[in-house]
Design a protein around this nucleic acid. Sequence first.
DNA 1: CTTTTATGTCAGTCATGTTGACATATTACC
DNA 2: GGTAATATGTCAACATGACTGACATAAAAG
Lengths: 157, 157
Amino acid sequence: MTDIKAAANPLFLRDEELRQGIELLFFAYRDFTAEGDAILDRYKFGRAHHRVIYFVGRHPMISVSDLLSLLRITKQSLSRVLGQLVREGFILQHPGPRDRRQRLLELTPKGRELENLLTEKQRCRLAAAYRMAGAEAVEGYRNVLLGLIDAPDRLRF
Amino acid sequence: MTDIKAAANPLFLRDEELRQGIELLFFAYRDFTAEGDAILDRYKFGRAHHRVIYFVGRHPMISVSDLLSLLRITKQSLSRVLGQLVREGFILQHPGPRDRRQRLLELTPKGRELENLLTEKQRCRLAAAYRMAGAEAVEGYRNVLLGLIDAPDRLRF
DNA sequence: CTTTTATGTCAGTCATGTTGACATATTACC
DNA sequence: GGTAATATGTCAACATGACTGACATAAAAG
């Protein structure tokens, strides 16, 4: 009559290990995103605006369709958020030089300022975690997360 | 006239490194949660139901207020989701033995079944990422994510 | 016996996602 | 040149899951 928990049951240990890994991801994501939300409230923006500002900042002159596939949302969802950001002067749209149907997106100085404000918090938090964990841990963090990402997008890194 | 990018500018490299870390977390979370959503659709449930089922499964006989502070949502938000799960027979409520105001929560067999179905996918995906990255990487993953979590909840691990 | 606590509920609002249908301008192709 | 495909935008309706605020009940704690 072996106690399934007390015994060094490899399946039990594995399950516990994996559940902890799941929860770490959940809590880390929750706390990592919570900080920026407070700032966004002041602009009457939400997390969706943050994501758009981030990726447009990261990929200047990105096309709408490329942005859509990064975010994995519909154009109708994007258009509400993007429309606000354009109207309020955080993002500029340029006709594509080769394909004039495109609207290539770019941050204005005002947009860059907000992007910096938002991302700086996150960079600080991540930098602190990196420092505490050490360089080797950072490689591990990267490799495990990479393995969680669907193959197509994995190539980005 | 040094090129700020071409030169081995430590600040530039650091920024790029941190942004990659941010994006890895974003994409990993996006893809990690997407899979379960498809299953939940079949039950007419959403991601919120998944979280409740997960944490009740993980902490049998958890009180409502403890669940609330795990999820960091309001009781009004929780009650809709929890109410459905109770009415449809996925979760049982028991009066607390010492404090009878409490409604301690527990999965029914039906709830456990759904929990398993949902979590199994995630465990598999994480296990695959762990295998690919190796044991040392797993430690790094854990330590970095731990550093991203707000101190109070960090103690859980 | 009064207050605090744990929980539930009603009502209204907001942010962000969805589908489906349709419009416009531009490019690509035969 | 004419037609089809593409990139984008827009209107409308709807679902989910957050929120706030107010109020109700039962039990515990003082």
